[in-house]
Design a protein around this nucleic acid. Structure first.
Length: 459
RNA sequence: GGCCGCGUAGCCGAGUGGCUCAGGCAGCGGACUGCAAAUCCGCGUACGUGGGUUCGAUUCCCACCGCGGCCUCCA
């Protein structure tokens, strides 16, 4: 498949280090607060890549880290008067919960920074040995000018950066652009023993150390939000390549940003839509559908209207599944179904063009309905199977009904009411029939009458 | 200020130097229905502005306008 590579700014063939296997590192969240839509997008994009390649038969080794020590976590903990680890633990659980609801397949490894301090220290010592790092007191810094290729990912020029002035000069640093590899501990902060005294790792070093620990050097794809390109990923490259002398990640995958009200999403700008709330009202599939309805690299405007549209679009897929669920015919050969499957594959192979993949899904839905109405059940079943399978590749479960309350009891009660309604209808007592349907609608149960009886679904 | 990207019908969003045509949501008409819902059929002279290149540009080039992102340990 072809995938955009931030390093070259081009869509290029994804050639894994080992044929048939893909090593993928994702910059995971800093567990400092509640997960928001941005975290979800940054996790879903690599999830879709992974699902697509696994669908293609690849063995995907996905590593997604958890940053569980960092300034913001410490600040938050101090405000609450608890240990930083407690904040990280609690927020980590929130992320787990949301990621599970979003149907993210679990990573093969989910390393925590605090569990990998030793390899980080080793890496920093290696950087000292090659002259790329220097210690001042208890701090250790990366010497940016020792790495001539600095800026190659973000397309930045060192001199322009220097004139940018926005990096505040720090007396301890040789150069304002140098960044922290290790920070001396201040009183009350979590800290680890190190050759430079007690302290904690800088942010960037953890990804260099943990990706190397699980994927080695020169792994295939490194993913993250576009806002991580500079400085985070630039710094990772500098650290890793200065230490090993070998190329770091081969392919860089970055997703675009979410905006709200025309501006980049941020908690300070009064977030209208909460992620958990959206999951509650629209369901995980609709939220995923929203994310994948635009190309992953373009910025997306988030709003209730967009989520409603995504919900409606997904509902069309679900309705098709419902309409064909009872068909028992053997799937028939169909050149049309095959052509739409190929369109889907071509779209996914072309830099994860999920909007086009959606179009292929809708084409299958249309063909399937048409076949069903024409009595061509074999083709309808083939289309249904294709839609179900390919929707699954995008992470949608269109066979699952929404609204977790659809237990056996609810189902039984609805069936009972529908049986009574059927009696009323056959007695031409439409007032009663409509009352039942209207009351059910108020409760979120939609009733559809079909020649073979009534079907119902939630919401 | 530097770097990057974007402006496509009511909304979202693909795509292409000319070939009938993305797709979705919303809307309108028809079919079906007791009425609906779901579904099917049909329906929209879209490509920010001004130049240029070209036989021909929404697509390439230039300028302009508008919008966004990064340049701060933000996904």
């Amino acid at each position: 498949m072809r995938l955009h590579n931030t390093l070259t700014r081009q869509v290029e063939e994804l050639v894994p280090r080992r044929p048939g296997a893909l090593s993928l590192y994702v910059c995971g969240p800093t567990v400092q607060g509640a997960p928001h839509f941005g975290h979800a997008l940054a996790a879903i994009v690599p999830d879709v890549l992974r699902r697509w390649l696994e669908h293609r038969g690849y063995d995907v080794f996905l590593v997604r880290n958890v940053t569980d020590v960092d300034d913001k976590i410490i600040t938050q903990a101090q405000q609450e008067g608890v240990f930083a680890a407690e904040v990280a633990e609690r927020c980590g659980r929130l992320f787990d919960e949301v990621f599970t609801r979003l149907r993210l397949l679990p990573p093969r490894v989910e390393p925590r920074a605090t569990g990998h301090v030793d390899p980080m220290i080793d890496l920093i010592e290696q950087l000292e040995r090659v002259g790329a790092a220097y210690a001042t007191g208890g701090d250790v810094w990366f010497r940016v000018r020792s790495f001539p290729e600095y800026g190659k990912l973000s397309g930045r020029d060192l001199d322009e950066l220097r004139s940018g002035v926005r990096v505040e000069a720090d007396e301890r640093k040789e150069d304002p652009l140098d960044f922290a590899l290790w920070k001396a501990a201040k009183p009350g902060e979590p800290s680890w023993r190190s050759p430079w005294g007690r302290g904690r790792p800088g942010w960037h070093i953890e990804c260099s150390a943990m990706s190397a620990a699980y994927l080695g050097t020169g792994f295939d794809v490194h993913a993250g939000g576009a806002d991580l390109i500079f400085p985070h990923h630039e710094n990772e490259i500098a650290q890793s390549e200065a230490a090993t002398g070998e190329p770091f990640a081969r392919h860089w995958l970055h997703n675009g940003h979410l905006t709200m009200g025309g501006e980049k999403m941020s908690k300070s700008l009064g977030n209208v839509v909460s992620l958990t709330e959206a999951l509650d009202t629209h369901g995980p599939d609709a939220v995923r559908f929203f994310f994948l309805s635009a190309h992953y690299r373009s910025p997306m405007e988030l709003s209730d209207e967009r989520l409603d549209e995504a919900h409606a679009g997904l509902e069309r897929l679900r309705a098709f599944h419902r309409a064909t669920a009872a068909l028992t015919a053997e799937p028939a050969e169909s050149s049309e179904v095959r052509a739409h499957r190929e369109d889907f594959a071509a779209a996914m192979d072309d830099d994860l063009a999920t909007p086009r993949a959606h179009a292929a899904l809708f084409a299958l839905v249309r063909a399937g309905h048409a076949a069903r109405e024409a009595g061509d059940d074999g083709v309808a079943v083939a289309a249904r199977d294709a839609v179900t399978e390919l929707a699954g590749v995008l992470g949608y479960d269109i066979t699952a009904e929404e609204g977790g309350a659809s237990g056996a009891l609810v189902g039984g009660l609805v069936e009972l009411l529908l049986a009574l309604r059927a009696e009323a209808r056959s007695a031409r007592d439409f007032a009663t029939a409509d009352r039942i349907r209207d009351r059910l609608a108020e409760l979120g149960v939609t009733v559809e009458d079909h020649p073979d009886g009534a079907r119902w679904h939630l919401r």
